[in-house]
């Protein structure tokens, strides 16, 4: 329909109005204020840059000596007259601990999140959520203490059983007992520690699943689990992936709990049930005081740089995924 809404009589001689741009003129105190907060924003940015560049800068001497062998050797390697350092065993150990942690932690966390968003009675939901958050607040050294004195003695029995009956899986083979202070036990502790992180994010994403589709599934005769499987889980898939990745970032960096449990060793090993292993953060923590020996300070700083890059990449990717799934865009992997 073409209705001419311009009914008002218009004087033809009226000049066409020129648009004016309103520029905000800040007073001096406002300028100072804006300058101040911008500076602090810039400061945060510079801080991250500084972390990366100082670690890279102070690790560089070690890299110059070791070359790419840093990534392909394990422990101190004697080259000519001086010992070179290689991070390979710690890198694989880090990945193994994180892997064990995710295998145990992620399903438990996702189930906990489902419980909080779908099963828990409304009245107790808030306090249960607070309990889970509290778990994230408990210092990792206390987790480590608990794991060392309470978890480890119990898990050793399980490890023995696994090494006896599941030895056909290469990871579970044991060639040199004892079975304490192992990557497996360290991974279990870290797995417990990442539960609150993964569960919190998953709960948030699950609770955003559209009510209309939930009701549609139920009205078609779905059980609660069928409803979750058709509506909640597909909707929350992106968030779940992001949450697990954030948990992974946390698992890769955990220092003290792992250091308390894991006995240091510089051998690349796939046998996660047996004594000994190493992660990057544990390597830094236990060798720092003895620096000046075989392991130079620069070697450790280079290790710190590697860990920094590893977690940075994983955390940024995970954040992007969680944010996308929160906006409902979903993820294609």
């Amino acid at each position: 329909m073409a209705i001419d809404l311009d009914l008002a009589p218009r004087r033809p001689q009226a000049p066409a109005p020129t648009p004016i741009t309103v520029t905000r003129d800040y007073s001096t105190p406002d300028k100072v204020f804006r300058w101040g907060v911008q500076a602090s924003g810039l400061g945060v940015f510079l801080l991250l840059v500084a972390i990366g560049s100082f670690l890279a800068w102070s690790g560089w001497p070690a890299f110059k000596v070791a070359g790419w062998g840093f990534f392909t050797h394990s422990g101190p390697v004697l080259v000519g007259s001086h010992a070179n350092f290689g991070v390979l065993a710690s890198l694989t150990g880090t990945v193994e601990v994180a892997f064990v942690a995710m295998v145990f932690g992620a399903p438990v966390a996702i189930c906990t999140a489902l419980f909080l968003s779908e099963y828990a009675p409304l009245r107790s939901r808030r306090s249960l959520i607070a309990m889970i958050d509290l778990a994230a607040a408990i210092p990792s050294i206390i987790f480590g203490l608990w794991a060392f004195f309470e978890l480890q003695p119990n898990v050793v029995g399980l490890s023995t059983w696994m090494s006896r009956h599941l030895a056909f899986i290469p990871f579970f083979k044991v060639t040199s007992p004892p079975l304490n202070a192992s990557i497996f036990i360290a991974g279990l502790v870290v797995g417990i520690m990442i539960v609150p992180i993964v569960a919190s994010i998953c709960r948030e994403v699950f609770s955003l699943a559209p009510a209309g589709e939930r009701e549609a599934a139920l009205a078609l005769g779905a059980s609660r689990w069928q409803m979750i499987r058709t509506v909640v889980l597909p909707f929350g898939r992106g968030g779940m992936i992001g949450a697990v990745m954030l948990g992974l970032g946390r698992a890769l960096e955990e220092t003290i709990a792992v250091t308390i449990i894991l006995a240091g060793s510089y051998k690349v090993t796939g046998q996660i049930l047996q004594h000994g292993g190493s992660t990057i953060s544990q390597l830094i923590a236990i060798n720092f005081n003895q620096s000046g020996g075989a392991l130079g300070v620069h070697d450790l700083l280079l290790c710190g740089f590697v860990l920094f890059l590893l977690t940075l990449v994983i955390n940024l990717a995970a954040s992007a995924i969680v944010n996308r799934s929160r906006s409902g865009a979903g993820v294609d992997l």
């Binding site: 559209p210 209309g212 589709e213 009701e215 549609a216 058709t230 597909p234």
Partner: peptide
């Protein structure tokens, strides 16, 4: 229901 709610996936 009032609002159409097919399973989008």
């Amino acid at each position: 229901f009032q609002k159409p709610n097919p399973f989008p996936a």
